[in-house]
């Protein structure tokens, strides 16, 4: 029970503080163009007279609301799901692992299904939501299992 690659318990709280505003920000960012700032881009396709032209390593202008939301959501979800529980032990670790396996099946099963039925430009939404969906499935499954275990204790006493 040495290194388990988990964050300290106190990060869990910060995860929630980060996730809720980031999710809101992410939804807003789909409709507005706020916070347009110069950013460093590795490669960027520009359309000149409808001709796509790939530009390497340059500074471009980009609204960064969605980038901020992505950082907040991913780091926040990881802090919530991968911080130690108040009393972390081997059974909790196994519960976490089981939830991880479960969410791999659900996430990629769903992704295959959507790949089968969603096409063209609409598939872009699938790709936008997929990275967050995995963490959210994992989080919900893990928290639900912990909740179920705790409730069972309550029922037996």
């Amino acid at each position: 029970m040495k290194s388990n690659y988990l964050f300290d318990y106190k990060y869990k709280k910060w995860g929630w503080i980060l996730v809720l505003p980031s999710a809101t920000l992410g939804l807003i960012s789909q409709h507005v163009n706020w916070l347009k700032v110069p950013v460093f881009s590795f490669f960027h396709t520009k359309f000149l007279n409808d001709e796509p032209k790939l530009k390497l390593v340059q500074i471009i202008e980009n609204p960064i609301l969605d980038e901020l939301a992505t950082f907040g959501l991913i780091i926040g979800c990881i802090w919530i799901a991968l911080s130690k529980e108040k009393i972390e032990d081997e059974f909790i670790a196994q519960t976490r692992l089981n939830s991880l396996v479960w969410s791999v099946y659900v996430h990629y099963g769903l992704l295959l299904l959507l790949t089968l039925f969603i096409y063209d430009i609409n598939y872009l939404s699938v790709l936008i939501y997929a990275p967050f969906a995995f963490l959210i499935f994992f989080l919900l499954r893990f928290k639900y299992t912990l909740y179920k275990n705790k409730k069972q204790i309550g029922d037996e006493e």
Partner: peptide, 15 residues
């Protein structure tokens, strides 16, 4: 030094 869930799961032969 374990959680109560762990004791409960062991007693219920679930862990």
């Amino acid at each position: 030094s374990v959680s109560r869930q762990t004791i409960n799961a062991m007693e219920g032969n679930k862990y």
